[in-house]
Design a protein around this nucleic acid. Sequence first.
RNA 1: GCGGGUGUAGCUCAGUCGGUUAGAGCACCAGUUUGUGGCACUGGGGGUCGUGGGUUCGAAUCUCAUCAUUCGCCCCA
Length: 456
Amino acid sequence: MAANKPSIPSGTRDFGPIEMNKRTYILDTIKSVYKKYGFQPLETPTLENLSVLTGKYGDEGDQLLFKVLNSGDYLKKTSEEDYKNGAKAMLTKISEKGLRYDLTVPFARYVVMNRGTISFPFKRFQIQPVWRADRPQKGRYREFYQCDADVIGTNSLICEAEIVAMIKEVFSSLKLNGYLIKINNRKILAGIAEMSGQAGKESELCVAIDKLDKIGIEKVNAELKERGFSDDSIQKLAPVFNLDGDNQSKIETLEALFTSSETGKKGIEELKTVFSYMEKMGVSADKVEFDTTLARGLSYYTGAIFEVKATDVKIGSITGGGRYDDLTGVFGLPDMSGVGISFGVDRIYDVLEELNLFPEEAITGTDLMFVNFDEQTEAYCLPLLQKLRAIGVNAEIYPDSAKMKKQMNYANNKNINYVALAGSNEIAENKITLKNMISGDQELIDLESFIQNFKK
RNA sequence: GCGGGUGUAGCUCAGUCGGUUAGAGCACCAGUUUGUGGCACUGGGGGUCGUGGGUUCGAAUCUCAUCAUUCGCCCCA
């Protein structure tokens, strides 16, 4: 064994060929849907200046940022005194850059920097890895991919309806039927807070009720009480948490409750508009559920909130998103409303894997391999190989004239569907033997029909 | 930041109460088969038992430390 076993940092992963093929299948599907709805690609640097990143994700978030040491002598700007003042004071002197923590903040930064050349509304999608210095655990990594699409610079609720349409299209392309799109609106949550006599406390309310399906109503109530909600207001909240029936009847019940809350009414109005746009687009409300207990952690959402849950696999949320009103404000460009969505590739991967939904085409790499007997075979096969590649066949020749068994084994392990053999017999007759590796059948055919076989 | 589990062959793991030369399956290589993979049989290579100390006549096994890794809590995707 080597002196040092190589390893990768915890919470990071290698993606081998099989995994990559499957991931590419998912990402290509999402990408093509994004494009279909008019979103344009964007990439931003892995490294951002820490001044862009810090303060955007709360204190916890700042802790979770990966910071990069300055190049060269990174201690040259520091003094004894900085050392005494501790890590926080030291940090600004030794590190100016960090790894991106999400795709939303870099996007906001890009929009602000390029506001002169962008024509709004701006629709962009972005599929890149992000990094968090979190403690890794099941389904949580330090490096993972986000696939975001956002439209910024419009209040139109058509965007919300389109998001629902995109979610449906992505999952139906992936042949995944077991999912539920949950939709809510931050203004409705605010209305609920108002109605319970705790106006302005919706963020406390959100944090608590977001846990409803996890810890149950009793504990949520206990937590609300802890956060300063009176027994009276907790009682008023009860009917909201126990809403029954379909989307329409939930909406009607809330409308009746919101007589005194302008914000709540606005939220309901928005929700109804989204549903009506969907109807005009022919997007069925099937699998779309209005859920007043959906809150999502992120505090910057101001309008619609989305979350998609897989129903056949216990895994939590596989997609999320929502509307925000002031994303670019911190960078000096106020009043830019936007709405966005993010598909969780890693979790979608796990779901498709568990339900065995990856199609054969997504997994197979090479279609055909030429067995290599000797130099004569090579001379005979190489032109054929290039001919096949020219018509789009994924093909290869075994590079060495190794033992037959080894070559066949290679093809077998690599899941190659066809193997072509051309030894002295075939060459003498100007033919080739084509073997189907799945059925095991093989036949001696002339070169013309050999090529024809792979034309589609 | 807090708590638990696990480190033995390339991989997954077994290893009794501390006792001789540390095992299995898979993978790999060779052969049964000089031009035919999957299946079967035969043989083979491959280990600083994570690392360092301690206890002991004797440690993979007990103990301490350390590193790695993993699961959960907080938080999040």
